[in-house]
Design a protein around this nucleic acid. Structure first.
Lengths: 233, 233
DNA sequence: TGTACATCAGTGAACGCGCGTTCACTGATGTAC
DNA sequence: TGTACATCAGTGAACGCGCGTTCACTGATGTAC
């Protein structure tokens, strides 16, 4: 009974996965706005109404894809960090590795990247479920900087007085124990990193930057410096 | 006759402008993907086919909106710079003013911002016409940094050797006369600035950064530092 | 082990909707002589 | 100044298309006794 019920359940899991895979393929081909339940069903040889057994609406399918995308880039970041740590990399090496992993993931999954870091999909509002997975990459960076801080410490210029309360609050909210200077610098660096990747991915570097990998490594190094990670390590 | 022909031409200009205005309003209400010729026509009390007298296709209307958006943010940046310059602001003050102007424009025109700096519109490829207007903001920053460089000079760390050829090429292409260190830092700063604005606008700062204006000013100051603009001036 | 019943995946038709674009047309405005 | 002609903005109907979602249904799979 647990095995037979398991059979039906396993089938359900497989079909759900197949729907998401096909949806991801369509996302890559056409973009989020053109993602349609009917087209996904057609491609899978199902009738469109059958998809409603798996996703109650188009928006729920979108949400599932968004959660998966956050998890996918989060896992890529965590793995890059773990690998570097295992190879005795210091905080700066880990920082660079994670930046590179985010960029590599984005280049491999441009439409999933656009889904989570690009312009919001019109008419769609992200539900609560996306919050947890959304923070995995940021948490990886926090971990790196925390390790550096607890090691040799981080030297950062003092915060402007106006920002201090906000930085203290942010620190308490999601990076307790870090100095507020570090938290503020980290949030800025994270936004700036996404700016770099988005520019490359969305074509803003066309006719401007040719050697993108080298340029990205340079800019990621700048960001590391911005959060107080020195050139060594 | 020049006046009569002028009458017809003036009417044409007015209707063209009305179409673009209405399209912009719909952009703000629904986003680029939902922009439809039929809806614009409906709103203007015209029949949809009439729009084809003014724009040969939906994509051409989009292109016109994109060009206008680039010009609009470009003008905002240039004006902020000119005002600061007129008030005897130094390069750093000008930098901060232009960063703030870009952010302010983005907050006022979120969908037009998304149109030019967000994820690309699926199925649309920008024609040549957009290149010129697209560079107005960047050119404003180049002008500021050039003034600083030709004044007291800018102290920046040396470039990584691998990036030098690329930085030299970029300099020759669009910032001749600047040291390559400055060009590279400037391009990175520009991408990072857009990252900051996008995070705020696209909701990535929800539950993270509350006091966005203060945070932005802090981050823009960091960017100024990154291109060698010191705290004075 | 066998039977009666419940669950649930998938079907096929239908609903009402909006879209971009084409085309032959009307009628007003502008031009040439 | 008046007339014949050309230009061109706007009309209305039509084309073919795809979409999300609902609903009553069939038939296979699983469950309880």
């Amino acid at each position: 009974m647990s095995t037979t019920r398991g059979a039906r359940e396993r089938a359900r899991i497989e079909v759900t996965a197949a729907i998401k895979d096909e949806a991801r393929r369509m996302l890559a081909a056409e973009g989020a706005a053109k993602l349609s339940l009917r087209a996904v069903a057609r491609e899978l040889g199902m009738v469109s109404s059958a998809l409603y057994r798996y996703f109650p609406s188009r928006d729920d399918l979108l949400t599932a894809l968004i959660v998966d995308a956050y998890d996918s880039v989060g896992a890529a970041a965590e793995q890059a960090d773990a690998r570097t740590l295992a190879a005795d990399g210091g905080p700066r090496a880990r920082w660079m590795a994670v930046c590179g992993a985010v960029r590599a993931w984005a280049l491999e999954h441009p439409h999933e990247y656009a889904l989570i870091y690009g312009s919001p999909v019109p008419g769609y509002t992200a539900p609560q479920d996306t919050i947890g997975p959304a923070s995995r990459v940021a948490n990886t960076f926090i971990g790196i900087v925390r390790a550096a801080y607890e090691g040799r410490g981080l030297a950062l210029p003092p915060l402007p007085a106006e920002l201090r309360p906000e930085a203290v609050r942010m620190t308490a909210d999601f990076a307790p124990g870090l100095p507020p200077e570090v938290t503020a610098a980290l949030v800025a660096a994270w936004a700036q990193l996404v700016g770099l990747v988005s520019f490359e991915l969305f074509g803003q570097f066309n006719r401007v930057v040719e050697d993108r990998a080298t340029f990205f490594a340079y800019a990621a190094g700048q960001l590391a410096h911005g959060v107080g990670l020195s050139t060594t390590g």
